[in-house]
Amino acid sequence: MRGFLIWVAAVLAMTAPAKAFDTTASAAWVYDVQTGTVLMEKNAETPLPPASMSKLMTLTMLFEALRDGRVSMDTTFPVSEKAWRMGGSKMFVEPADRPSVEDLIHGIIINSGNDACVVVAEGLAGTEEAFARQMNERAAQLGLTHTTLTNASGWPDPGHRMSMEDLGLLATYIITEFPDLYPNFAMTSFNYKGRVPSNAGNRNPLLSIGTGEWTADGLKTGHTQEAGYGLVGSAIQDGRRIIFVITGLTSDRARAEESERLVNWAFREFSMRTLVPAGEDVAQAPVWLGTVSRVGLTTQNGVNVLVPAGVQDQVKVEVVYDSPVPAPIARGDRLGQLVVTIPGTRDTVTPLIATQDVPEAGLVGRMKGAVMQLGQRAITAVTG
């Protein structure tokens, strides 16, 4: 027998329906970190040229090397002729230099240095080709299923591809796993040995926008002729963080305008709702052959969801479990799931766990339970 409970969330006031975001980007992905909700996606799983946005994978490899103790911020790397001769955006390292890991982090994030990326690749893996193989292996481990990388910088190559969803997931990983390093993404200027032109600072257009409502703090721009203008961005409002990825814009101005418009939409058109407070029982499930007849079902951390404006009275919550639940049961055992359905968004599924231990009943208890079950079946047969 399948046990379930359905109810509809009520609201006191109605607002205008949330407007779908019709982006001019060729591909996009928008994500709310706190609730794990994908707010919008457009061609999000399509592998596309990521340009310099793929530098996030190079930084991830460097951040993990720092975390694992393989390098420190003071570790220095040599500069090869290949790195020195890299074109495009540069940190302006020279063969005689020995930039530190800290310098290179700044050079990649702020100056978008293609030369700095090659220095890191060769410093960590010996060659850029070996580093690309390591990045692909790590990307697969991180669940980036639409990523294939051939170089460390995002230099145009037919085989160098990432989806917007993969870039967003990678940004989420960086933010959550490296909180001590993430503030580097909000830095706007870095001038290695006085060689960097004044116009080679951080190109993230949102870092200089102060709306008074939200604050942007990362992550990485990208631009090539093939890819167009793109941005992996993140912003916070009242403790709520969104991450977004866009690509295929026609100019840096279009990228700036679309990014700001998208962030405003993500914060204004969705409101946070607590459907299940942390620690609150969601249901009482019947127990089969246990020392008690019912066991509480709860969530690990409660359930918070984002609800688009205008559909608050259409939220459906379903508690699903196999009933009765056979004993023995250990506190924390996963016994079912809570499914939240909101129009216009993906369903949110949260595991339901037991609130207590329920030992198996003794012989007498099992006999009573068997008799009651047989009696219930008989009643069902007669009345059915």
Results as ranks from 00 to 15, higher is better:
residue 37 T to A: 09
residue 322 D to K: 05
residue 102 E to G: 12
residue 273 R to I: 09
residue 222 G to H: 12
residue 241 R to C: 04
residue 34 Q to T: 07
residue 321 Y to V: 03
residue 227 A to G: 12
residue 254 A to G: 08
residue 158 P to K: 07
residue 333 D to F: 06
residue 62 L to S: 01
residue 244 F to I: 10
residue 375 G to M: 09
residue 78 P to F: 03
residue 342 I to G: 08
residue 146 H to Y: 06
residue 102 E to T: 03
residue 320 V to K: 04
residue 131 F to S: 01
residue 297 L to M: 02
residue 241 R to H: 08
residue 196 V to C: 08
residue 287 V to Q: 04
residue 231 L to K: 07
residue 217 D to N: 09
residue 231 L to T: 04
residue 141 Q to K: 14
residue 281 D to Y: 14
residue 12 L to A: 10
residue 98 R to T: 13
residue 326 P to A: 10
residue 383 T to E: 08
residue 26 S to A: 15
residue 287 V to F: 06
residue 171 A to L: 03
residue 366 R to A: 08
residue 179 P to A: 11
residue 15 T to F: 07
residue 84 W to I: 03
residue 217 D to C: 04
residue 202 N to W: 02
residue 310 G to T: 07
residue 184 N to F: 15
residue 160 H to W: 01
residue 268 R to V: 00
residue 222 G to I: 12
residue 277 P to H: 13
residue 184 N to L: 12
residue 189 S to E: 15
residue 147 T to I: 10
residue 5 L to I: 05
residue 203 R to D: 01
residue 119 V to P: 09
residue 178 F to S: 08
residue 47 P to N: 11
residue 272 M to Q: 15
residue 195 R to N: 13
residue 261 R to E: 11
residue 381 A to D: 04
residue 255 R to V: 05
residue 297 L to R: 03
residue 297 L to K: 00
residue 208 S to V: 04
residue 211 T to M: 03
residue 271 S to N: 10
residue 291 T to L: 03
residue 64 E to K: 05
residue 156 P to D: 04
